[in-house]
Design a binder for these strands. Sequence first.
DNA 1: ACTACAGTTTAGAATCGTTATAAATTATAA
DNA 2: TTATAATTTATAACGATTCTAAACTGTAGT
Lengths: 138, 138
Amino acid sequence: MGSSKEYIEKLRKSGLRPTKQRINICEALFDAEKTFHFTITDLVKIIETKANQKISLATVYNTIHAFQKKGYLKEIAINSSQAYFDTNTTDHHHFFDEKSKELIDLKDEDVHPIKIKKNIPGKKIKSVEVLVRLDSEN
Amino acid sequence: MGSSKEYIEKLRKSGLRPTKQRINICEALFDAEKTFHFTITDLVKIIETKANQKISLATVYNTIHAFQKKGYLKEIAINSSQAYFDTNTTDHHHFFDEKSKELIDLKDEDVHPIKIKKNIPGKKIKSVEVLVRLDSEN
DNA sequence: ACTACAGTTTAGAATCGTTATAAATTATAA
DNA sequence: TTATAATTTATAACGATTCTAAACTGTAGT
């Protein structure tokens, strides 16, 4: 999907120096066919497997936060125990499987459009997130 | 709103011994005119102020989890840094003010009914939560 | 290419919210 | 009143995340 060159370009454009580590993170995140969801420890494993190279946790946190700020990633609020991220930054909603702890994208057409009829003076809506929790059936 | 007697009754009915600490927690949670949102540290402060008595963090966590299991409280997923709870256990949605870190209830009539048109085989929907994040306007 | 400097990475320490532990205390049934 | 199990507590342990300060690296200017 992406070449090393593209990622170097992308990083430079964002004001981030294209280091070996950041390129490895880009490859882990953006080479995939599809967008996906991950936790930080998931990602460390993916990077280290794909690049066959160790990476410091601090670097992963730093870079993920930088990417989030640049809008290359979104955080999904699930629960208070761990941060989940999504490489799909378009507006969309999620299933969360309580059993497997897995996130599943809902497509726009899977959810009736949501209208919020209340507004708070001096505040504007930044995002509307729907989380549908799933249970095993039986 | 509630008398100590009522809480003793409520606790007994739930199979929980009515200890001084649990009654203090009940008073902090259920004496209020309105339902409200809180984090654990919020709650400790409320309890210690109201009852003028120290309480162990562990007791608060234990009791909150017991109450959650009994359905007297709900947890609201906001972010991965802290757990938020709600004394309003009916189905409803929330605003979250990113600036003040405050939760605000949305009434049923404030949100168009949400229909999920996708289903996952073997799974059933446990809950549908909408979180509307608010930003300062300007 | 060489240098200087700011940006980055790193291991490890520190922090935060939360959970576990084990000893002391308390509620309750007999 | 006593025996027992449930509860509380202080403190330790934990996992995720952030901080720190020293080593390293990318880059702009020579």
